[in-house]
Design a protein around this nucleic acid. Structure first.
Length: 534
RNA sequence: GCCCUCAUCGUCUAGAGGCCUAGGACACGGGCUUUUCACGCCUGUAACUGGGGUUCGAAUCCCCAUGAGGGCACCA
């Protein structure tokens, strides 16, 4: 029986890298009719939080990655939280101590740091080993338990990378129980993977050097190790690691540019705008900390679009989970035959470890945006309505309040012209209230006296059409407006600016029908007053 | 510094010794369509890191160099 797992640590949001690991494990299990286990690795008492765990579950659910065993959303912690399994770990910890493969170590963190510094100074690698002369064999503080790694080379066959060998002199005796009594990651994964019957460990390549340690533990515990496969990593387009810090980095950079380029912008004014104290802002700008709240506040004040990193960022930006999943699957994996747009079912059917490459990939947001648009264009109303509801649950656009018939109407207008649901939500604002006029567009299309004459003419033509407006009634006058100018359509831009506030909108016919006669004429009047005034 | 891994267009990739004059997709350029913006259609630019082998023949196999990435915690 094939059984895979995804084992996040609840120390933050689920980010795309983690989502990809989850996806590949899920696909592999589903493809082979196996099971997919979700386990929360909360052995870090300091950094783990319940909110983070709940958020990760919610994000996985949003992605549609369902698990056969694991935490139950909304319920108390169960045995798929490592913090609930302490007795189990202790039992095996004892076993290793009894067989003298694990031993107490008394160095304090400071002492260890000094030992490492010394080794570095002497240009030799630092390895903690039981038989090293400098080892403290007793101490007053709390001790940790270390595992005596074998002294021979450890070799294994990685399903993606092939044969991997690490020499015996490279190992060191890892800590398996921290001084707080909790097992370390290394110990807990091994115990849990074995007890939970995990057959395949599919994880990111950053874990490659952990595998020999784990293999050593399996051997010491007398267990058969699962098969390992290490997948390539995902980076930003500039080859930096994708991390939560990218968001604060972007906010910091934008703020600094602003302060530098805009002489009217001072630390004080910017802080006020973002609702921060100047001190907090200064500390943030000097990289003293990466507070997400400050990042958000700054981004809002600067109207800055932060890079999406976490799964929920993508949800808030209006990406469909199917599109995100499809895109993520294609980084480091290819089904061959030049296939690209793949439904969940196709992904499941086509997935194979052989298709996973060895080279790290980059996260190309432009391609994701294209793919999301592709999904939107090919989705039916029901699918999109569901996606909108899910999007609306985490965002706050006026479109949220729209009744379903209007939503369907808007979908018809925007389906072909949006890359994300957020684009529609943003661009359709003028259907829900008077637009803020884009002064550049106003100047460009209604800047001259001739333009204003056209504006009055348009008003005259449209006011002659009685309510309610429909395409039969509206088509002829619209054609008249289009042909008003020598250059076909120049006058229709005036109308577009009047109703939408800018130079871009869905086709005027649909727009005007949805807006209706009263609103249209009212906005035509508003624009006339605006240009009259100045 | 030490250890491990990797290497095809700007990006994701196809490519399992002859099908390669290296294919697809995104991005980018040009054109068509068009009442705006998109969509759609047509079309163009663009890559086997370098050097040695092996072979009749190498993007594909081997070695070296170079470059890139990961790891070296009482984090996971």
């Amino acid at each position: 029986m094939i059984r895979t797992r995804f084992a996040p640590s609840p120390t933050g949001f689920l980010h795309v890298g983690g989502a990809r690991t989850a996806l590949f494990n899920w696909l592999f299990a589903r493809k082979h009719g196996g099971e997919f286990v979700l386990r929360i690795e909360d052995t870090d008492q300091v950094r783990s939080t319940a909110e983070s765990a709940a958020g990760i579950l919610a994000d996985l659910q949003w992605l549609g990655l369902d698990w056969d065993r694991g935490p139950v959303p909304g319920k108390e912690k169960n045995e798929y939280f490592q913090s609930m399994r302490l007795e189990i770990y202790n039992q095996y910890l004892d076993q290793l101590v009894k067989s003298d493969i694990a031993y107490e170590a008394y160095e304090t963190p400071a002492q260890l740091a000094a030992m490492r510094a010394k080794a570095e100074k002497e240009k030799r690698p630092f390895r903690y080993r039981r038989n090293m002369p400098s080892r403290a064999t007793s101490g007053q503080g709390p001790s940790v338990l270390r595992f005596e790694m074998p002294h021979e080379a450890v070799e294994f066959n990685d399903l993606i990378l092939g044969h991997i060998a690490v020499g015996g002199e490279e190992h060191d005796d890892i800590v398996i129980r921290k001084s707080d009594g909790f097992p370390t990651y290394h110990f807990a994964v091994v115990v849990d993977d074995h007890l939970m019957g995990i057959s395949h460990v599919l994880r990111a390549q950053e874990h490659l050097m952990n595998t020999p340690k784990h293999l050593g533990l399996y051997r010491a515990l007398g267990w058969q190790a699962p098969v390992h496969a290490h997948m390539p990593l995902v980076f930003n387009m500039d080859n930096t690691k994708m991390s939560k810090r990218d968001k604060s980095k972007a906010a910091r950079h934008a703020a600094q540019m602003m302060l530098k380029q805009d002489p009217t912008c001072t630390m004080e004014s910017l802080a006020t705008r973002a609702g921060l104290t100047p001190e907090a802002l200064a500390a943030f700008l000097h990289q003293k900390q990466d507070d997400p709240a400050i990042t958000q506040a700054l981004a809002a004040a600067l109207k800055l679009q932060l890079p999406e990193i976490d799964v929920q960022d993508f949800r808030r930006s209006g990406y469909l989970s199917d599109a995100l999943l499809n895109f993520i699957a294609l980084i480091g994996w290819a089904p061959g035959e030049n296939r690209e747009i793949l439904s969940r079912e196709e992904l499941k059917a086509l997935f194979s470890l052989e298709g996973i490459g060895k080279t790290n990939g980059r996260f190309d947001r432009k391609k994701l945006l294209w793919m999301n648009g592709e999904y939107i264009r090919h989705s039916d109303d029901a699918t999109l309505l569901r996606a909108m509801a899910s999007f609306g649950a985490v965002t706050d656009y006026p479109i949220k309040a729209a009744p379903e018939p209007m939503l369907r109407n808007l979908l018809g207008m925007y389906r072909e012209r949006m890359g994300t649901l957020a684009e529609m939500a943003e661009n359709s604002r003028f259907f829900f209230g008077p637009p803020d006029y884009d002064l550049k567009a106003v100047k460009k299309f209604v800047g001259s006296e001739t333009d204003r004459n056209y504006l009055r003419e348009i008003t005259r033509i449209l006011s002659a059409i009685p309510s309610p407006w429909n395409s039969e009634k509206l088509n002829p006058p619209l054609e008249t407006i289009i042909t008003l100018t020598e250059k076909r359509g120049a006058a229709s831009q005036i109308l577009r600016v009047a109703v939408s506030g800018g130079a871009v909108s869905p086709p005027l016919l649909d727009t005007l029908i949805l807006l209706g006669r009263d609103v249209t004429l009212q906005r035509l009047g508003n624009l006339e007053r605006l240009v009259q005034a100045g």
